[in-house]
């Protein structure tokens, strides 16, 4: 301890204090401040960049999810539309088939009806003609039968014979 005190050099102490003080002052001004500020700034900018990258990533994810959703929606919409179209087509086809059937059967019915009518008319006419013909024939036969007196008398006789029988 005594040696230490004896060795203590005030001059060196004085210079060390002074020079170190000056050193700290200059370093603070020309080195530490700019260095620490630059480092801080860089750290901040890196943090910001990382943050914004993260944000962009999330946004991208959202966007992708959105896209997917939209795509899905579009797909299902398309499917629905196709289905609807198919249904309409089917319905149209069946409708028209039915209509045609109806129309056809109606026509057939009408035709049948007409045919029936025509048939009736023809039968009536035929009947009339047959009647007329038979009247004519009967007339002629009668005329022929009843042309002479004996014949007329014979007829009356026959008839009377029949009556007797009856």
């Amino acid at each position: 301890m005594e040696k230490l005190i004896e060795q203590f050099s005030f001059g060196l102490f004085f210079w060390q204090l002074l020079l170190f003080g000056i050193l700290v002052y200059f370093l603070k001004k020309f080195a530490w401040k700019p260095i620490l500020t630059a480092v801080q700034e860089r750290e901040d900018s890196i943090n910001n960049a990382l943050l914004s990258a993260e944000k962009a990533r999330i946004e991208m994810q959202n966007l992708q999810a959105d896209n997917e959703r939209i795509l899905k929606e579009a797909r299902s919409e398309r499917d629905a539309m196709l289905k609807e179209a198919r249904e309409i087509k089917d319905k149209m086809i069946s409708d028209s088939k039915e209509e045609a059937q109806k129309q056809a059967s109606k026509l057939i019915e009408q035709a049948k009806h007409t045919i029936e009518n025509e048939k009736q008319a023809a039968i009536v006419e035929l009947k009339n003609q047959v009647a007329e013909l038979s009247i004519n024939i009967a007339e002629k036969v009668l005329k022929d039968e009843l042309s002479s007196k004996e014949k007329q008398l014979k007829v009356i006789d026959d008839m009377l014979k029949d009556m007797k029988l009856n």
């Binding site: 060390q16 050193l23 200059f26 020309f30 080195a31 401040k33 700019p34 260095i35 630059a38 480092v39």
Partner: peptide, 20 residues
Amino acid sequence: IILVSLLMIVVFGRMAKSYN
């Protein structure tokens, strides 16, 4: 001490400048 101080000022001063 003076030499070391100068050395430090030069080295760290240059370092600070390199950040510009």
